[in-house]
Design a protein around this nucleic acid. Structure first.
Lengths: 220, 220
DNA sequence: TTTGCTCTGATTGTATGTAATCTGCCCTAG
DNA sequence: CTAGGGCAGATTACATACAATCAGAGCAAA
């Protein structure tokens, strides 16, 4: 569905579309992005496409080299664990700030997401629910910069989370779901301390798990 | 001094120069940036200038509105305290990662910076030394993302740190220097825990101080 | 006097053309 | 057969031209 666009947001729209494609996995890390394809796909000139690529580059989703080209960004093991380390220190803080701002209905929705996740046996569905669970618990505080930073961390690590989920989905690790329910319970009791703590350990566990499994990067 | 530039870094160079001007205070928050001036100043066309502005926008130093113009970014009290809150959680972590990588010479240099800062009675000199002290304690770990994030936090808050220093420089608050020496001592003993903790409290005190003095924003 | 509209000048977004740079292949020398 | 240099093709950075949008001045009506 193409909506009417006003002058000046064509670059942003191309970026949004490309971002969505990258996050959905239709573009994979290391894959080359050809501006020519985008210009004809969006019926735009090279300049909005260029703007879009530079925007995504600033978000860390694209890497470009002068006079050479642009690729979907790749992460090394060290990069990935570094991003998780930052997440581990920022996201629990943001969650804490959200606790007093969430309604009971918001918490009910989180509960439903956690339940649905537990029953899900499809990787993509699990990923979507997991992302929705975490991000919707963070969007109530109007902290533009902290929120954007955390969102960026999620986006940059999205592909590797997908890969890890694919490889370990069969392993019946219940701790993830356990954490989610612990978080929901903490939210119900408005226990900021507990929510922050559980989320920090939750992310920390993911980080250690990832650093223990470098084979996730084999697909590169 | 103009060095020979290769094709493809003109935008980055304009951005670097503009960034330096903003950090030095030659551009003030809210001040309009006129692309026409930059094009003739750098003998470049509008496109590299545009690239530079978009790059600085992604760093949070510039705010631009479509079809309207670009200004040096301004921060509200809430924005500023939010940035300090993030700094408070990331910078001590980064410092900790640096501790085992610093040489005795590095620590000596920090000691000299702390001493010089204590004797300095000029605002600009103090600012330069303070920035140098903190950033040079962080540049040993090759953590591209975390380092860049922290550097960005310093840059975005630079002007308000200058303003706060101007207004409170006479107040003989020794705690800042005390913290710096505590940090140097912790580094000498390779006490990561202590270094991290002192820096966290150091930033936290600055944050609370700023939130208590909204008059810093009067000059806007 | 104040409020609202219109129009104009200025400024930016977009399109196209030109020049510089890089990658990969091919050829040659060892 | 291998390694190094150079050439060609492709791709991007930069310059210029044009179209769309916005802000403010000026005027008219209440």
């Amino acid at each position: 569905m193409t909506t009417e666009l006003s002058h000046g947001e064509m670059g942003a729209n191309i970026a949004a579309s490309l971002r969505e494609s990258i996050l959905a996995g239709r573009y994979k890390p290391g894959e080359r992005i050809k501006p020519a394809e985008l210009t004809e796909q969006y019926r735009a000139s090279r300049i909005p496409v260029r703007d879009a690529l530079r925007l995504l580059e600033s978000e860390g989703l694209v890497t470009s080299v002068a006079n050479t080209g642009a690729w979907v960004a790749t992460l090394s093991v060290d990069d990935l664990t570094e991003l998780y380390l930052v997440r581990e220190h920022l996201e629990p803080l943001l969650l804490r700030m959200n606790v007093p701002l969430m309604s009971d209905d918001n918490i009910d929705e989180l509960q439903q997401l956690a339940d649905a996740m537990e029953l899900s046996d499809d990787v993509e569905r699990f990923l979507r629910l997991d992302r929705e669970f975490h991000l919707s618990a963070l969007r109530h505080a109007h902290t533009s910069m902290l929120s954007n930073t955390v969102l960026g961390l999620w986006n940059r690590t999205q592909h590797y989370r997908r890969e890890a989920t694919r490889q370990f989905f069969t392993g019946h690790d219940r701790s993830v779901h356990h954490d989610h329910h612990l978080i929901v319970n903490a939210l119900r009791h408005r226990d900021e301390e507990e929510a922050e703590h559980v989320l920090r350990r939750h992310i920390r566990r993911s980080r250690l798990e990832l650093s223990r499994h470098p084979e996730i990067f084999a697909a590169t």
